[in-house]
Every structure is written in structure tokens, then in C-alpha cells.
Amino acid sequence: MWTYERRLEYPVKIKNPNPALAKFIISQYGGPHGELGASLRYLSQRCTMPYREVAGILTDIGTEEIGHLEMVTAIVHQLTRGMTMEQIKEAGFSEYFVDHTAGVYPQAASGTPASAATLAVTGDAIADISEDMAAEQKARLTYDNILRLADDPDVKDPIRFLRAREIVHYQRFGEGLRIIQDNLDKKNFYAINPEFDLR
């Protein structure tokens, strides 16, 4: 069960509409390294994770990612509300506008709709956690690229917060991998899949 808290995890307060920024920041909502995929990846993988600590990490990081998805949608919304037709045309936002107006749609910067094809649930503890560590690094580098492209300090501030969280999540997943390996045969971590063979 989840409960909505009427607050953002970190403030998003953007004064000026700027659809040119919204065009690529939306990738962290519905793109290949975005927060929607992150939350679904972890909240799906947790079902068969046999170690309680690691299932807790997947649950709680998956939950925080929903809060991050909310922050990214708030950023995109605040960058596109009140935009003029001139700004839409100048920013090259027309292709998005024609289908979604100023709505917030989960898609990649390229326009591809959010897809579960960008995440994996292998049912194998080591494979899943290794994927999660890579996913956090891919989200981190996407935020790095957004920081290279964005020039508005109101946008950069919450993006820096989100970037820092990816690094913490990477650290926690690394500890999760260690916990998994501590539970396995030290001579051969791959002798069994604890998600399947220990049922």
C-alpha cells in the first residue's frame, strides 16, 4: 500500500517557462534512464528477492523514485505552463505540443513513449542488483548531461539533488550485492540462483 504525501521531496520552484529545457528533461520522467522505469524496475524485482535487507532496499529506493518522478513532472510542468506560442515554435516544441499540448507525458527526449523494454526483471538476485547499479549510474550521467545543457539555476538546483540521490542509491545497491554474496557459496557465487533454487 502507498500513501500520497502532499509535498515534494525537494523544492521545485521555476519562475520562467522554457519549453526548450522541458524537451530533454522529460527524458528523466519516461526515458530509458528515467524515474518511471527506475521505480517499476525495483518494485517489480523485489517480489522474488529472498534477502529481507535487499528486498527492503528495493522497496524503499523504488518508493523514493516515485517521489523523484513527481519532482521531474513538476519541473516539466513548471517549464511549460504559461509558455507562449512563439516560445513553443522557437524551442522546437511543436512536435510535442501537437499531441500533448502542455500536458506531461512519460516519454524519452527522442519522443519514444516510456517502455518496459528499458528495464529488466531477470529473477536472478546478482543479475538484478547488477542491473540496478548500472541503472543508477545511467540516471546519474543523464542528470550530468542535463546539467551541461540547462542554463536556468532554478532548474539546475533540483536536478543536482536528483543526481546526488542516484549516487547514494548506487552505494546502497552495492551493499545489497555484498549482502547477497555473503549469503552465497564464497567459492562460487553462481552455483545457485537464490531467487529460484532456494524456494
Binding site: 504525501e5 509535498r7 521531496e9 525537494y10 535487507e53 527492503g56 532496499i57 524503499d60 529506493i61 523514493e64 517521489g67 547514494v168 542509491h169 546502497r172 551493499e175 545489497g176 549482502i179
Partner: peptide
């Protein structure tokens, strides 16, 4: 709230 969120994750791996 942020301190609690961060501690929550830390305590999952350092209970």
C-alpha cells in the same frame, strides 16, 4: 523528511 528517507535506506543495509 529527507533525513528520514536517507536514514531509512542506510538502515536497510546497516540494520
Amino acid at each position: 523528511g529527507f533525513a528520514l528517507t536517507d536514514l531509512n535506506l542506510f538502515l536497510d543495509s546497516h540494520p
